[in-house]
Each structure stands twice: as structure tokens, then as C-alpha cells.
Design a protein around this nucleic acid. Sequence first.
DNA 1: TAGGTGATTGTTGGT
DNA 2: ACCAACAATCACCTA
Length: 125
Amino acid sequence: MPKVSAKDTKKSAGVQAAAKKRAKKDPNKPKRALSAYMFFVQDYRERIKAENPDATFGDVGKLLGIKWKEMNAGEKKPYEDKAKADKDRADKENAVYKGNAKAAKAAAKQQALAADDDSEEEESD
DNA sequence: TAGGTGATTGTTGGT
DNA sequence: ACCAACAATCACCTA
């Protein structure tokens, strides 16, 4: 089993004035595709708060998670669809990022390995 | 090649 | 500005 669950979400954060948590390694990585849960939250967030005005982050999160699990594939479908749509968008950004970071990544790998071989590849573009 | 871990995404409210 | 549980996911690296 790869991982039990999202138990330890926190580690040694170091991002103070960047974005959220953990400093990203890549300089210009396009925000990945949001998960169906992300869209589900955005939509249900209001509902949960409406039915649970007292529910705070933790409470809402719990309820949201429970609801999500109770939801059927058909219910998640629209959310997954959004996730897929976002993936499509992210895919494009990712493609651009790759095209740009391709050389950088290759160089980084060489540096990381610090190999003595001469595996230099030129970008014709 | 296959497996695994870390990094990322979004919410609100408090410190 | 960051962190907290919740779930997904997936890109990247290592053996």
C-alpha cells in the first residue's frame, strides 16, 4: 500500500511568502488539475454552510468528505467532468511548461547525477 | 517497468 | 501568511 491516507498533510513547510505549503521545486509549474473533490467543495461549500452555519472548517470538511463518499458515480460525474475539464486546461499549461522546462530539467538531472558522461542533447528549437 | 512518495488543488476561520 | 481535515491525482523520481 502506497499510503494509508492523507494523514500527515503537514510536514516541514517553508513557504512563507510564496503560495501555500511546501516550497515547490520547479520554478514555473502550472497549477495541476483540480480534483473532483475540489469542485465538489466549491459547490457544496455553500450548501454545507447553509445547513451547518455553525460548522467550521473541520466540521464542513468532515461532512463534505462523508457526503462525497455517499455520493454515487452519477453524482460525482458532473464533478469529475469538471475535474476532467480542468485537467484539459492544465494539460495545455503543462505542455507549455514541459516545452520550456525540458532543457532546464535535462540540465537539472545532469547536475543532480553529476555524471561524468557527456549526454548533452541540443534543443533544435 | 513498476512502485512510491511528495507536491498540488480548494474551502473557512483563527492565530 | 499559514495551518487545520477532507479526498483526489498525478507528476516525478528511484530501485
